[in-house]
Design a binder for these strands. Structure first.
Lengths: 211, 211
DNA sequence: AATATTAGAGAGTGTAGCTATCCAGTCAAG
DNA sequence: CTTGACTGGATAGCTACACTCTCTAATATT
């Protein structure tokens, strides 16, 4: 398949495909002549994956490149892949290591230890959580373990579900893609449902009942 | 307080504060002379709120402007405010209304109707959910009502919690700020906890037990 | 009087993600 | 064998965003 067909079948403009090739997100096609190259279904799948991560996951291309690198790294197991995917997602901020931050960070550590969760000390989600809590407190909102617990409970239930859904007997290529897609694309699903649920609950409490 | 003190107390550079003033995110200070203006604690609070929405919520300034407009609109009730906040958050994509999209959109409607959730037909989270599902399916992942249900259950529990936490006896200014902050800033908390839970579950299943 | 600071406005910066234009080489149709 | 559409590859340009810098005239502090 030539680039025009790849473009037609994926819905991605040729210029953008060329850009992804330049950026190393998409492996080059097999050159058959100086101005000719063949692409196959693997390219098509990869392209669809990239677009999914861009459009739904809102990931910057640099993060996608890291994730794809992990997908292509045969030496990485599922757990390692998941770590890489999460690391690529993680917040890009490195906050000031002041006292307020340190204190909250310690509380996060204590909270996770209390839950018995096994997470690495450098997991970006730790920073993400710490930053959110610091900010909430600075705004005068309550943000202690009591507020966190229901969220942690929900998170644990869903994580068990997701990890349980992984079919380890599938071929590696399908497996890793499933893990990445699941990690990145189920987040918007959860967020969307949370917002819808919030609107519903708000309607129940604050809006006049339907006529 | 002069702009330099506002800057010092908020940690936001003077140039950035001026930029926010120009962009209408921050109301102008009270001018005491041609080159002098006084700012007060309201400005400081507003500035902190803006930074929270930027840094933790990752909202574009245009969305923040809309949210602040809703906060300042005395005619808006809590339910309306929440709607505005969610609308400002919503995805910026307007997807191609092709057959695949329409079909999934109908399934989303059916799913929400089945849950008995009262949400407006134009809620941006509907689009967000539809897009995520379309994308998941295009990648060959299962994304039907069975997969959605656990997420919906968790979302409902958390939403009830959040809406229940709102103290309607508080003064309006505190109330609306609480709603906005809760809506926007608890999302990162949930996401972070989901990722941490996922890492933990993945470790339980795939990683060798701790020595 | 000398120095620093201020408000306000415009222009400039850097990053991200494309998009447009060129060019020489290639292919299929007539 | 010519014509015209298309190709890979390289380069430059574009738009949006969130600042950041520079300038000016007016003020304040010492």
């Amino acid at each position: 398949m030539l680039i025009s067909e790849l473009s037609r079948r994926s819905g991605v403009p040729i210029a953008t495909i060329k850009y992804y090739l330049r950026e190393g997100l998409l492996p080059p096609g097999e050159a058959t002549a100086a101005t000719r190259a063949e692409y196959d279904d693997l390219h098509l799948g990869r392209l669809r994956l990239i677009r999914a991560l861009v459009e739904v996951g809102n990931l910057p291309l640099a993060a996608i490149r890291r994730i794809l690198g992990a997908v292509d790294n045969e030496d990485l197991d599922v757990h390692g892949l998941l770590g890489t995917a999460q690391y690529a997602l993680g917040p890009k901020v490195d906050p000031p290591e002041d006292e307020e931050w340190q204190e909250t960070s310690d509380q996060v550590d204590a909270f996770l230890a209390d839950l018995g969760w096994r997470v690495t000390s450098f997991a970006p989600a730790r920073k993400m959580l710490t930053q959110a809590l610091v900010t909430l407190r600075r705004l005068g909102m309550p943000a202690g373990a009591d507020q966190l617990r229901p969220y942690a409970g929900a998170a644990e239930t869903l994580a068990r579900e997701e990890i349980g859904r992984i079919d380890t007997s599938a071929p590696r290529s399908a497996l890793v893609e499933g893990v990445v897609v699941g990690t990145v694309l189920y987040e918007p699903v959860l967020i969307a449902l949370c917002r819808l649920a919030q609107e519903h609950q708000s309607a129940l409490r604050f809006a006049p009942p339907r006529s």
